[in-house]
């Protein structure tokens, strides 16, 4: 992708208009609001804000149409989702223990020359649990694709062609937030990554909140203080992978205890070498096809436990170079 712009939440203080102006995007815009699920079509505010130049791709409604016309695919998709939910539950159980071990060791009163190696090992164990979960979810997804070939089902193909035609007439794609799994499923059903790659000219993508999460490589679900318990950040699975090397954290100020250095440190170490980037209102991170740059207020979670503006970090003057991935 030649231009990917990730933004903080747009609901209260939208900046998407400025961003489109900054990049000189003219004319018609394609939008995806499938993260709003049944409310997908309720995009009047967005339309008005952007001067009624949006064409909503209606991926949620299209997927309903596909499932209505292709019951076999619907049942298979449903079964796949059941399996993924079950896997997520099982992973969550292992994850809780791995996180407990890492947190316990972080506070263990032992000489640093003894405990450091143990702490490192605990983080490695955590990364292994994550890695295995990613592999399992990917396998389930692949199995579904190999067995049912959703891309070549007539109902999907019909929409795919229509979407390609619409996107061919647009100057940018905007992906709004919402329910990240639902959004990702719809984009995956219509192979948004393949679709974008097939266009005659590259289409800039502007995405915010769940939209931003869904197009990165790994989707991390997080909330440090949910009502139901400890709030262990967990991987949902692979994202569309349009943008590399970044874990996106929308509403970080509200959802994460950014003043808890231990939690921040563990988070950053767990997901490195990806940068864990907080995307609050007004924040932005830009991928220009080679490297990342960030807005002046955009912050990153660091292994030290600090949360610093990316632009202020001595090792990462803008543009932020993509780090080698292990």
């Amino acid at each position: 992708m030649t231009l990917g712009v990730l933004l903080g939440p747009q609901r209260l203080a939208p900046t998407i208009d400025q961003e489109l102006s900054r990049w000189g995007i003219p004319g018609q815009l394609a939008t995806i609001t499938a993260g709003w699920q049944e409310r997908e079509a309720e995009d009047d505010e967005l339309q008005e804000f952007l001067g009624h130049r949006c064409v909503n791709l209606r991926l949620h409604a299209r997927s309903d149409d596909v499932f209505g016309r292709d019951p076999e695919l619907f049942q298979a998709h449903r079964a796949k989702q059941d399996t993924l939910r079950h896997l997520q539950d099982l992973y969550r159980g292992r994850l809780a223990h791995a996180l407990d071990a890492a947190r316990e060791l972080a506070q263990a009163p032992a000489p640093s020359d003894l405990v450091e190696a143990e702490r490192e090992a605990a983080v490695l164990a955590l990364r292994l649990v994550d890695k295995q979960h990613l592999a399992r979810t990917r396998k389930v997804q692949r199995q579904f694709e190999l067995t049912y070939h959703p891309a070549s089902r007539p109902a999907v193909d019909e929409h795919y062609r229509e979407l390609r035609s619409i996107l061919g007439e647009c100057f940018a794609l905007l992906i709004a937030g919402g329910h990240v799994a639902s959004l990702l499923n719809r984009m995956r059903l219509f192979q948004l990554d393949t679709l974008l790659a097939s266009l005659p000219r590259p289409l800039p993508v502007f995405a915010w909140s769940a939209g931003a999460m869904a197009i990165t490589e790994r989707v991390v679900l997080f909330h440090d203080s949910p009502p139901q318990g400890p709030g262990n950040a967990e991987l949902l699975g692979h994202g569309l992978g349009l943008l590399p090397g970044i874990v996106v954290l929308p509403h970080a100020r509200r959802r994460l205890r950014l003043d808890d250095r231990e939690r921040v440190s563990l988070f950053a170490r767990r997901f490195k070498p990806d940068r864990c980037v907080a995307l609050d209102e007004g924040d932005r991170a830009v991928w220009n096809g080679r490297e990342w740059s960030a807005g002046p207020s955009t912050r990153q979670l660091l292994p030290s436990g600090d949360v610093e503006c990316i632009a202020d970090l001595p090792e990462s003057k803008e543009p932020v170079a993509q780090e080698a991935r292990s």
Partner: peptide
């Protein structure tokens, strides 16, 4: 606390 633990809602999944 009981219901949100037994049937956690999509708070975890929703990022508006």
């Amino acid at each position: 606390s009981g219901l949100s633990w037994l049937f956690p809602g999509p708070l975890w999944m929703v990022y508006e």
